[in-house]
C-alpha cells in the first residue's frame, strides 16, 4: 500500500490545481454571465467583409 503515499498527495496536488484554476476563472468574470457567451460563437459570422468592407473583396456565398 506504499503507493498510496505517492498517489494521494498527487491527487491532492491535482485538486489544488483545479481549485486555483476555478478561483482564477471566478475572479476573471468567467461565471458572471452563464448564458450569453455560449451563444456568441454562433452569432459570429466569420466573414471578414462584414467588419472591414473595403479591406477584403466580397466573397460569393
Amino acid at each position: 500500500m506504499t503507493i498510496l503515499i505517492v498517489m494521494i498527495p498527487l491527487s491532492i496536488l491535482l485538486l489544488i490545481g483545479a481549485g486555483v484554476a476555478f478561483f482564477w476563472a471566478v475572479d476573471n468574470d468567467q461565471f458572471d454571465d452563464m448564458e450569453t457567451p455560449g451563444l456568441l460563437p454562433l452569432l459570429d459570422n466569420p466573414q471578414p467583409s462584414d467588419l472591414a468592407p473595403s479591406a477584403t473583396p466580397e466573397q460569393a456565398p
Binding site: 468574470d29 458572471d32 454571465d33 448564458e35 450569453t36 451563444l39 456568441l40 452569432l43 467588419l51
Partner: peptide, 27 residues
C-alpha cells in the same frame, strides 16, 4: 437577449479608442 449583448459589444468595440467592453445581460 444575447443578441443585444453581441450587438453592444460589437458596436462599442468598433469605436476607436474603446479598449474593453463587457456586457452582462442578467445584470
Amino acid at each position: 437577449c444575447s443578441a443585444c449583448v453581441w450587438l453592444i459589444e460589437r458596436a462599442l468595440g468598433a469605436l476607436s479608442g474603446v479598449s474593453s467592453v463587457q456586457v452582462n445581460a442578467s445584470a
